[in-house]
Structures are given as C-alpha cells and as structure tokens.
C-alpha cells in the first residue's frame, strides 16, 4: 500500500510555481530520498504535506485517505522543519511532553514518551536544556527527536544532517535506517551519498517539477550498467570484441581509455554472465581491471537528469 500519494500538487508564490503539478507515490515502510538543486521545491513540498502551506492545486492522500487538505493532529505525519525554533526559557523535555499531550497522550504517558524519544537520540540529559541554550547541532537533533514522538506513520525530514558533524550525521543515518519498515520516511538532502546509503526510493525535483521517482537501484541502473576500471589503456579492438557480445547492447570507453562502460541488453539481465564474458575478453587481450561497479552513482544519475545543476 502507498503511504503517500501526491496527485498534481502545485504551489504558486506570487504567480511563480514553486511546485508544478507534481505527482508521485511513496510506498509504506520505505525510506524515500527527495533530492534536487536549490529552489527545486523540496521544502515547499514538505511544507505542503505538513500543512504549513496551502496548495494552489492538486491534492495528496495518506494511506488512501485525505484529500486536498491535511487534517493534522492524529499522529499521521511528523516533520523536521528546516527553520523552526523551540521556545526560549522552556526545557526541551517540557516541549516534548506538551507535543505528546497534543497527540493525545495522558500526562504520565507523555512524560514517558518524551523520555523515550530523548533516549532514542541519546539526548536524555540534554533534555533539561532550554530552547535558547542549544547549539545548532543539538537543536537539529532535538528537532529530529520531536518527529519520533507518537510514532507518526509518515516522517518528513528536511535536510536532517545539514550542519551536523560527521559523527552526529552518522547517528542520524543509523536512526533513519532503524525506522525502515516500521515507519515511512521521506528525507531531503543535498548529500547524495547519504541518500544512496539510507534510501530505497528516490524522487528528483528540479525547478518545481518532478524529474524522476524511481526505486533507487532502477534509477542508478544497477542491473543495466557495469563499469570496469582498467589497469591499462584499452584498444579499439577490445571494445569491438565486447560490442560483439550478445549480452551487451552498448559499450564505450572513457576519454583516458581506462574506463569501460557496458550497457546490458535488456533481454540478458544476468550480470554474472556479462562479467564473466567481459573478464574473459580482457584477459585474452592481456588486460586486468582494478575496480568493477554496477550501475551509476546517484550523483552521476542526478547530474544527468538535472542537466548538471546539482
């Protein structure tokens, strides 16, 4: 079942489309990466889904229900907004108790829930700090923690690791990985390695339009493309020998003649056979390889589909 269905969703600001008739689906329990250049409409999309902005057109459905406007408050959706701040002079623990109360927890349950999520992000002791006493990184982690209150069915994380140090960013990635299968998570990030690392589905926006919404392995052509990094320069004869393989629909060499890219014929998607055949030809031509990679990197594909604007 789809956790989220976005249908022709649009948002205009002063007649300029920040989001232009975007439609895609998010499967339940998946971790979806939302990527796009600055100004692509990622934050606008999150803001529409969380009910911060009113759509100019279109609608979205949560688990098949909903409509044009979201009815919040039932733990259906939680969000890490980019620029929201906690209130000064009130401890984060108190904030969290209140958020849990708003979601229907009784006072003792709310306190327990606040403690649980703080423990989950390893910030139980820092919970006594007030909104104005948090560093940027701490604030970000607290803001992520509040998305876990009440175990919302869909969690939207807008750039969750931006501004975090490497160790903190890794912890956040671990946290998101741990949610896979239990909750549906949509993560936006400029860090494409991170998206490739934690997501199983990728949605690409550019200038407010949907460019692609695919399973990550399909998007990166994991099963359709193999790149060999050669130890020495290849020759035209070697390339021709590879092109003659029936398993291959296309092959090319990089400018330095040290990268051989093979595109698998759509009728022969068994990579193991292809690799065996190519390695056989390489070895017959006295060449070895230092690296072999299936598909493209997310970054390469992203730059392909966004005309290099990433």
């Amino acid at each position: 079942m789809n956790a989220l269905e976005i249908i022709q969703l649009s948002k205009l600001f002063n007649r300029v489309a920040a989001l232009n008739q975007v439609s895609f689906e998010v499967p339940e329990g998946s971790v979806v990466g939302l990527v796009g250049p600055n100004g692509a409409g990622k934050t606008t999309l999150f803001s529409l889904l969380a009910g911060f902005l009113q759509p100019s057109g279109g609608e979205f459905r949560l688990f098949g229900e909903g409509g044009e406007r979201l009815t919040p408050g039932k733990g259906a959706i939680s969000i890490l907004p980019q620029d929201a701040r906690f209130l000064n002079q009130i401890s984060i623990f108190r904030h969290f108790i209140w958020y849990a109360r708003l979601m229907g927890f009784s006072p003792p349950e709310a306190e327990e829930e606040a403690r649980r999520v703080l423990k989950e992000v390893d910030l139980l002791e820092a919970g006594n700090k007030q909104g104005d006493q948090l560093s940027h990184g701490m604030h970000k982690r607290m803001a992520i923690a509040q998305t876990l209150i009440g175990s919302a069915k869909i969690i939207l994380l807008d750039e969750p690791t931006a501004g975090l140090d490497p160790a903190q960013a890794r912890n956040v990635r671990e946290l998101v990985r741990g949610l896979k299968g239990k909750q549906t998570v949509v993560v936006s990030s400029h860090n494409l390695d991170e998206i490739a690392d934690i997501c199983d589905h990728v949605v690409i926006l550019d200038k407010g339009k949907l460019i692609s919404s695919e399973n990550l392995s399909e998007f990166t052509k994991e099963t359709a493309k193999i790149t060999f990094t050669l130890a020495a320069e290849a020759t035209g004869a070697l390339l021709q020998a590879i092109l003659d393989l029936s398993l291959i629909s296309d092959a090319s060499l990089s400018a330095d003649l040290k990268k051989l890219v093979c595109i698998v014929d759509s009728h022969h998607l068994d990579n193991a056979d292809l690799v065996t055949a190519v390695v056989g030809i390489l070895s017959a031509n006295g060449l070895s390889f230092t690296d072999i990679r299936k598909g493209s990197t997310l970054e390469e594909r992203f730059l392909d589909v966004t005309d290099g604007q990433g």
Partner: peptide, 20 residues
C-alpha cells in the same frame, strides 16, 4: 505572533488543527 515569527508553530501544527 511569536509562534509564527519563531516558526515554532511548525512543531505544533502537525499535531493539532489550526482552529483549535
């Protein structure tokens, strides 16, 4: 007012209706 200017309202709105 201050909820709107600090955008703290963004932590609240997913949990309650605007009317409430």
């Amino acid at each position: 007012a201050s909820e709107l200017s600090r955008k703290h309202i963004r932590f609240i709105l997913p949990r309650v209706t605007r009317r409430s």
